[in-house]
Protein backbone atom coordinates (compact mmCIF):
# COMPACT_ATOMS: atom_id res chain seq x y z
CA UNK A 1 0.00 0.00 0.00
CA UNK A 2 1.06 3.52 -0.54
CA UNK A 3 3.46 4.19 2.26
CA UNK A 4 2.86 7.88 2.21
CA UNK A 5 -0.67 7.13 3.38
CA UNK A 6 0.62 5.70 6.59
CA UNK A 7 3.79 7.59 7.13
CA UNK A 8 2.61 10.87 5.72
CA UNK A 9 1.05 11.86 9.00
CA UNK A 10 4.17 10.96 10.89
CA UNK A 11 6.50 12.86 8.62
CA UNK A 12 4.68 16.18 8.62
CA UNK A 13 7.59 17.77 10.41
CA UNK A 14 9.69 17.18 7.35
CA UNK A 15 11.48 14.01 8.36
CA UNK A 16 11.45 13.06 4.72
CA UNK A 17 14.49 14.58 3.10
CA UNK A 18 13.53 17.45 0.87
CA UNK A 19 14.26 16.90 -2.76
CA UNK A 20 17.46 18.51 -3.91
CA UNK A 21 17.07 21.60 -6.04
CA UNK A 22 17.30 19.71 -9.31
CA UNK A 23 15.54 21.21 -12.30
CA UNK A 24 11.96 20.28 -13.11
CA UNK A 25 13.09 18.52 -16.28
CA UNK A 26 15.33 16.17 -14.28
CA UNK A 27 12.57 15.67 -11.71
CA UNK A 28 10.08 14.71 -14.40
CA UNK A 29 12.54 12.32 -16.02
CA UNK A 30 13.43 10.77 -12.67
CA UNK A 31 9.77 10.39 -11.74
CA UNK A 32 8.98 9.12 -15.26
CA UNK A 33 5.69 10.94 -14.98
CA UNK A 34 4.52 14.47 -15.77
CA UNK A 35 2.21 16.12 -13.24
CA UNK A 36 -0.03 18.36 -15.29
CA UNK A 37 -2.62 20.68 -13.82
CA UNK A 38 -5.90 20.90 -15.76
CA UNK A 39 -9.37 22.23 -15.01
CA UNK A 40 -11.91 20.11 -13.21
CA UNK A 41 -13.82 20.15 -16.49
CA UNK A 42 -14.36 22.62 -19.32
CA UNK A 43 -16.02 21.67 -22.57
CA UNK A 44 -13.48 21.13 -25.33
CA UNK A 45 -10.50 22.11 -23.20
CA UNK A 46 -10.28 19.35 -20.58
CA UNK A 47 -12.69 16.62 -19.54
CA UNK A 48 -12.45 12.96 -18.55
CA UNK A 49 -14.26 10.54 -20.85
CA UNK A 50 -16.34 7.59 -19.64
CA UNK A 51 -13.16 5.55 -19.15
CA UNK A 52 -11.57 8.26 -17.04
CA UNK A 53 -9.06 9.32 -19.70
CA UNK A 54 -8.60 13.07 -19.99
CA UNK A 55 -9.24 14.67 -23.36
CA UNK A 56 -9.33 18.19 -24.70
CA UNK A 57 -7.43 21.11 -26.12
CA UNK A 58 -5.46 21.91 -22.95
CA UNK A 59 -4.93 18.23 -22.25
CA UNK A 60 -3.31 17.92 -25.69
CA UNK A 61 -0.57 20.33 -24.57
CA UNK A 62 0.12 18.16 -21.51
CA UNK A 63 0.22 15.03 -23.64
CA UNK A 64 2.57 16.61 -26.18
CA UNK A 65 4.97 17.68 -23.43
CA UNK A 66 4.87 14.21 -21.83
CA UNK A 67 5.57 12.63 -25.21
CA UNK A 68 8.45 15.04 -25.93
CA UNK A 69 10.09 14.53 -22.53
CA UNK A 70 9.24 10.94 -21.63
CA UNK A 71 8.41 9.50 -25.05
CA UNK A 72 4.98 8.36 -23.88
CA UNK A 73 1.87 10.53 -23.86
CA UNK A 74 0.23 8.40 -21.16
CA UNK A 75 2.91 8.99 -18.54
CA UNK A 76 0.92 11.83 -17.03
CA UNK A 77 -0.82 12.39 -13.78
CA UNK A 78 -3.62 14.86 -14.40
CA UNK A 79 -4.24 17.00 -11.35
CA UNK A 80 -7.64 18.68 -11.55
CA UNK A 81 -7.37 22.21 -10.16
CA UNK A 82 -10.01 24.81 -9.44
CA UNK A 83 -9.65 28.52 -10.03
CA UNK A 84 -8.72 28.82 -6.37
CA UNK A 85 -6.12 26.06 -6.10
CA UNK A 86 -4.38 26.27 -9.47
CA UNK A 87 -1.66 28.79 -8.64
CA UNK A 88 -0.67 27.31 -5.29
CA UNK A 89 -0.56 23.87 -6.87
CA UNK A 90 1.97 25.16 -9.39
CA UNK A 91 3.94 27.30 -6.95
CA UNK A 92 4.27 24.50 -4.41
CA UNK A 93 5.57 22.03 -6.98
CA UNK A 94 2.55 19.74 -6.84
CA UNK A 95 2.33 20.11 -10.61
CA UNK A 96 5.07 20.71 -13.17
CA UNK A 97 2.92 22.51 -15.69
CA UNK A 98 -0.44 24.24 -15.58
CA UNK A 99 -2.49 24.00 -18.77
CA UNK A 100 -5.79 25.26 -17.51
CA UNK A 101 -7.07 27.95 -19.89
CA UNK A 102 -5.39 30.57 -17.73
CA UNK A 103 -5.31 34.14 -18.98
CA UNK A 104 -1.82 35.61 -19.35
CA UNK A 105 -1.90 38.82 -17.37
CA UNK A 106 0.78 41.17 -16.09
CA UNK A 107 0.23 40.45 -12.41
CA UNK A 108 0.15 36.68 -12.82
CA UNK A 109 3.38 36.78 -14.77
CA UNK A 110 5.22 39.32 -12.64
CA UNK A 111 3.70 39.30 -9.19
CA UNK A 112 2.73 35.64 -8.82
CA UNK A 113 6.10 34.62 -10.29
CA UNK A 114 5.01 32.37 -13.13
CA UNK A 115 6.29 32.10 -16.66
CA UNK A 116 3.70 31.91 -19.41
CA UNK A 117 5.38 29.94 -22.14
CA UNK A 118 3.06 31.01 -24.94
CA UNK A 119 -0.55 31.20 -25.98
CA UNK A 120 -2.48 28.19 -27.19
CA UNK A 121 -5.83 29.95 -27.51
CA UNK A 122 -6.71 33.61 -27.99
CA UNK A 123 -10.04 34.12 -26.31
CA UNK A 124 -12.12 37.15 -25.39
CA UNK A 125 -15.25 37.89 -23.45
CA UNK A 126 -18.52 38.03 -25.35
CA UNK A 127 -22.28 38.14 -24.84
CA UNK A 128 -25.07 35.74 -25.78
CA UNK A 129 -28.68 36.93 -26.09
CA UNK A 130 -31.95 35.35 -27.18
CA UNK A 131 -32.76 36.34 -30.76
CA UNK A 132 -36.19 37.59 -29.70
CA UNK A 133 -34.53 40.30 -27.59
CA UNK A 134 -33.80 42.03 -30.89
CA UNK A 135 -30.33 43.21 -29.93
CA UNK A 136 -27.56 43.19 -32.50
CA UNK A 137 -24.78 44.94 -30.57
CA UNK A 138 -23.62 44.81 -26.97
CA UNK A 139 -23.89 48.60 -26.86
CA UNK A 140 -27.67 48.25 -27.09
CA UNK A 141 -27.75 46.35 -23.80
CA UNK A 142 -28.57 49.45 -21.73
CA UNK A 143 -30.48 48.41 -18.60
CA UNK A 144 -30.10 44.69 -19.30
CA UNK A 145 -29.83 42.03 -16.62
CA UNK A 146 -26.54 40.17 -17.06
CA UNK A 147 -25.67 36.72 -15.70
CA UNK A 148 -22.06 36.92 -14.59
CA UNK A 149 -19.73 34.56 -12.73
CA UNK A 150 -18.58 36.22 -9.54
CA UNK A 151 -14.96 36.58 -8.58
CA UNK A 152 -13.56 36.33 -12.11
CA UNK A 153 -11.92 38.83 -14.41
CA UNK A 154 -15.06 38.68 -16.56
CA UNK A 155 -16.90 40.56 -13.83
CA UNK A 156 -14.36 43.39 -13.93
CA UNK A 157 -14.31 43.48 -17.74
CA UNK A 158 -18.09 43.76 -17.76
CA UNK A 159 -18.07 46.71 -15.39
CA UNK A 160 -15.38 48.43 -17.46
CA UNK A 161 -17.23 47.90 -20.72
CA UNK A 162 -20.52 49.29 -19.46
CA UNK A 163 -18.81 52.24 -17.83
CA UNK A 164 -16.83 53.25 -20.89
CA UNK A 165 -19.98 53.05 -23.01
CA UNK A 166 -21.95 54.98 -20.43
CA UNK A 167 -24.78 52.45 -20.15
CA UNK A 168 -26.16 50.62 -17.15
CA UNK A 169 -26.75 46.96 -16.33
CA UNK A 170 -28.05 44.84 -13.50
CA UNK A 171 -25.80 41.90 -12.55
CA UNK A 172 -27.27 38.48 -11.70
CA UNK A 173 -24.43 36.77 -9.83
CA UNK A 174 -23.89 33.06 -10.56
CA UNK A 175 -21.29 30.62 -9.35
CA UNK A 176 -20.66 28.13 -12.17
CA UNK A 177 -21.09 27.91 -15.90
CA UNK A 178 -23.80 25.25 -15.50
CA UNK A 179 -25.75 27.58 -13.25
CA UNK A 180 -25.27 30.36 -15.79
CA UNK A 181 -26.75 28.20 -18.54
CA UNK A 182 -29.76 27.28 -16.43
CA UNK A 183 -30.40 30.85 -15.31
CA UNK A 184 -30.07 32.19 -18.82
CA UNK A 185 -32.41 29.55 -20.22
CA UNK A 186 -34.92 30.20 -17.45
CA UNK A 187 -34.93 33.85 -18.44
CA UNK A 188 -33.40 35.09 -15.18
CA UNK A 189 -31.17 37.37 -17.24
CA UNK A 190 -31.30 38.99 -20.67
CA UNK A 191 -27.75 38.09 -21.53
CA UNK A 192 -25.02 35.79 -20.30
CA UNK A 193 -21.39 36.83 -20.56
CA UNK A 194 -18.24 34.73 -20.38
CA UNK A 195 -15.35 33.83 -22.68
CA UNK A 196 -16.47 33.48 -26.29
CA UNK A 197 -15.31 29.85 -26.46
CA UNK A 198 -17.45 29.12 -23.41
CA UNK A 199 -20.41 30.89 -24.97
CA UNK A 200 -20.08 28.80 -28.11
CA UNK A 201 -19.97 25.62 -26.04
CA UNK A 202 -22.96 26.79 -24.02
CA UNK A 203 -24.97 27.66 -27.10
CA UNK A 204 -24.25 24.23 -28.57
CA UNK A 205 -26.05 22.61 -25.60
CA UNK A 206 -29.28 24.50 -26.17
CA UNK A 207 -32.31 22.74 -27.51
CA UNK A 208 -32.62 25.31 -30.29
CA UNK A 209 -29.24 27.04 -30.73
CA UNK A 210 -30.52 29.14 -33.63
CA UNK A 211 -32.79 31.05 -31.23
CA UNK A 212 -29.71 32.60 -29.59
CA UNK A 213 -27.01 34.83 -31.00
CA UNK A 214 -23.52 35.65 -29.80
CA UNK A 215 -23.03 39.40 -30.15
CA UNK A 216 -20.10 40.58 -32.29
CA UNK A 217 -18.37 42.63 -29.57
CA UNK A 218 -15.45 40.99 -27.82
CA UNK A 219 -14.82 43.18 -24.80
CA UNK A 220 -11.57 41.79 -23.45
CA UNK A 221 -8.33 40.10 -24.41
CA UNK A 222 -7.93 36.63 -22.92
CA UNK A 223 -4.74 35.02 -24.20
CA UNK A 224 -4.87 31.55 -22.67
CA UNK A 225 -1.71 29.57 -22.34
CA UNK A 226 0.27 27.01 -20.37
CA UNK A 227 2.49 28.27 -17.57
CA UNK A 228 5.35 27.02 -15.41
CA UNK A 229 7.16 28.28 -12.32
CA UNK A 230 9.41 31.30 -12.55
CA UNK A 231 13.13 30.66 -12.49
CA UNK A 232 13.42 27.24 -14.14
CA UNK A 233 14.15 28.35 -17.68
CA UNK A 234 15.28 24.93 -18.94
CA UNK A 235 11.87 23.48 -18.13
CA UNK A 236 10.13 26.59 -19.44
CA UNK A 237 12.01 26.18 -22.73
CA UNK A 238 10.91 22.56 -23.05
CA UNK A 239 7.24 23.46 -22.68
CA UNK A 240 7.52 26.61 -24.81
CA UNK A 241 9.18 24.84 -27.71
CA UNK A 242 6.88 21.86 -27.53
CA UNK A 243 3.98 24.25 -27.99
CA UNK A 244 5.89 26.07 -30.73
CA UNK A 245 6.62 22.74 -32.42
CA UNK A 246 2.89 22.03 -32.66
CA UNK A 247 2.25 25.46 -34.14
CA UNK A 248 5.22 25.40 -36.50
CA UNK A 249 4.28 21.91 -37.69
CA UNK A 250 0.97 23.22 -38.94
CA UNK A 251 2.69 26.07 -40.75
CA UNK A 252 5.18 23.67 -42.30
CA UNK A 253 2.50 21.19 -43.28
CA UNK A 254 3.60 18.38 -40.98
CA UNK A 255 0.52 16.39 -39.98
CA UNK A 256 -0.03 13.15 -38.14
CA UNK A 257 -0.74 11.55 -41.53
CA UNK A 258 2.57 12.46 -43.16
CA UNK A 259 4.71 12.56 -40.01
CA UNK A 260 6.41 9.20 -40.55
CA UNK A 261 7.22 10.07 -44.14
CA UNK A 262 8.58 13.51 -43.25
CA UNK A 263 10.59 12.17 -40.32
CA UNK A 264 12.67 10.12 -42.73
CA UNK A 265 14.00 13.33 -44.26
CA UNK A 266 12.66 16.05 -46.57
CA UNK A 267 14.00 18.81 -48.80
CA UNK A 268 12.94 21.47 -46.30
CA UNK A 269 15.75 22.01 -43.80
CA UNK A 270 13.44 23.58 -41.21
CA UNK A 271 11.22 20.48 -41.18
CA UNK A 272 14.33 18.37 -40.84
CA UNK A 273 15.56 20.44 -37.91
CA UNK A 274 12.11 20.30 -36.29
CA UNK A 275 11.83 16.54 -36.64
CA UNK A 276 15.43 15.95 -35.63
CA UNK A 277 16.88 14.52 -38.82
CA UNK A 278 19.17 17.52 -39.10
CA UNK A 279 20.90 19.66 -36.47
CA UNK A 280 20.85 19.06 -32.73
CA UNK A 281 17.89 21.07 -31.42
CA UNK A 282 16.73 18.19 -29.19
CA UNK A 283 20.14 17.96 -27.59
CA UNK A 284 20.07 21.68 -26.79
CA UNK A 285 16.80 21.16 -24.91
CA UNK A 286 18.17 18.12 -23.11
CA UNK A 287 15.81 15.83 -24.98
CA UNK A 288 16.04 13.18 -27.68
CA UNK A 289 16.58 14.32 -31.27
CA UNK A 290 13.07 13.25 -32.27
CA UNK A 291 11.33 15.00 -29.34
CA UNK A 292 9.11 17.09 -31.62
CA UNK A 293 8.21 14.10 -33.76
CA UNK A 294 7.06 12.28 -30.63
CA UNK A 295 5.02 15.29 -29.52
CA UNK A 296 3.40 15.52 -32.95
CA UNK A 297 2.68 11.80 -33.04
CA UNK A 298 0.23 12.16 -30.12
CA UNK A 299 -2.48 14.22 -31.75
CA UNK A 300 -0.93 15.87 -34.77
CA UNK A 301 -0.11 19.54 -35.20
CA UNK A 302 -1.84 22.54 -33.66
CA UNK A 303 -4.47 22.72 -36.39
CA UNK A 304 -5.37 19.04 -35.98
CA UNK A 305 -5.64 19.37 -32.20
CA UNK A 306 -7.84 22.43 -32.67
CA UNK A 307 -10.07 20.72 -35.21
CA UNK A 308 -10.44 17.59 -33.12
CA UNK A 309 -11.36 19.26 -29.82
CA UNK A 310 -12.99 22.61 -30.48
CA UNK A 311 -13.02 23.11 -34.25
CA UNK A 312 -15.93 23.66 -36.59
CA UNK A 313 -16.78 19.98 -36.93
CA UNK A 314 -17.19 19.49 -33.17
CA UNK A 315 -20.36 20.38 -31.27
CA UNK A 316 -18.58 23.48 -29.99
CA UNK A 317 -17.83 24.61 -33.51
CA UNK A 318 -15.30 27.40 -33.00
CA UNK A 319 -13.85 29.06 -36.08
CA UNK A 320 -10.08 29.55 -36.13
CA UNK A 321 -10.40 33.36 -36.09
CA UNK A 322 -7.47 34.86 -34.16
CA UNK A 323 -6.12 31.36 -33.68
CA UNK A 324 -5.36 30.83 -37.35
CA UNK A 325 -1.75 30.73 -38.52
CA UNK A 326 -0.23 34.16 -39.17
CA UNK A 327 -0.09 33.19 -42.83
CA UNK A 328 -3.90 32.99 -42.74
CA UNK A 329 -4.37 36.25 -40.91
CA UNK A 330 -4.33 34.86 -37.39
CA UNK A 331 -1.97 35.33 -34.46
CA UNK A 332 -0.37 31.89 -34.30
CA UNK A 333 3.29 32.57 -35.04
CA UNK A 334 6.01 30.19 -33.99
CA UNK A 335 9.58 31.54 -33.93
CA UNK A 336 11.94 29.76 -36.33
CA UNK A 337 13.43 26.39 -35.46
CA UNK A 338 17.05 27.22 -36.08
Amino acid sequence: MNKSVFFGALTVAGLAAGASAAGTLDDVKARDKLNCGVTTGLVGFAAPNANGEWEGFDVAVCRAVAAAVLGDSTKIEFVPTTGKTRFTALASGEIDLLARNTTWTFSRDVDLKFTFVGVNYYDGQGFIVPKELGVSSAKELDGATVCIQTGTTTELNLADFFRTNNISYEPVPIETNAEGQQQFLAGACDTYTTDASGLAATRATFDDPSAYVILPEIISKEPLGPLVRHGDDEWGDVVRWTLNALIAAEELGVTSANLAEMASGTNNPEINRLLGTEGNLGEMLGLDADWAAKALAVGGNYGEVFAKNIGENTPIGLARGLNAQWTDGGLMYAPPFR
Binding site: T39, A47, P48, P80, A178, A204
Partner: peptide, 26 residues
Protein backbone atom coordinates in the same frame (compact mmCIF):
# COMPACT_ATOMS: atom_id res chain seq x y z
CA UNK B 1 -13.75 18.51 -1.28
CA UNK B 2 -14.79 19.38 -4.83
CA UNK B 3 -13.69 22.98 -4.18
CA UNK B 4 -10.10 21.84 -3.72
CA UNK B 5 -10.13 19.90 -6.97
CA UNK B 6 -10.86 16.39 -5.71
CA UNK B 7 -13.47 14.81 -7.93
CA UNK B 8 -16.18 13.64 -5.55
CA UNK B 9 -19.64 13.03 -7.07
CA UNK B 10 -20.43 16.75 -7.17
CA UNK B 11 -17.05 17.58 -8.66
CA UNK B 12 -17.58 14.88 -11.25
CA UNK B 13 -20.86 16.41 -12.44
CA UNK B 14 -18.85 19.35 -13.68
CA UNK B 15 -16.31 17.07 -15.34
CA UNK B 16 -19.08 15.04 -16.97
CA UNK B 17 -20.79 18.16 -18.27
CA UNK B 18 -17.47 19.16 -19.79
CA UNK B 19 -17.88 16.25 -22.20
CA UNK B 20 -19.43 17.81 -25.30
CA UNK B 21 -21.94 14.93 -25.48
CA UNK B 22 -23.42 15.70 -22.06
CA UNK B 23 -22.94 19.45 -21.76
CA UNK B 24 -26.22 20.86 -20.47
CA UNK B 25 -27.34 17.84 -18.42
CA UNK B 26 -28.03 18.97 -14.86
Amino acid sequence: VSVIGLLDPLGLTNAIRADAAWNGVV
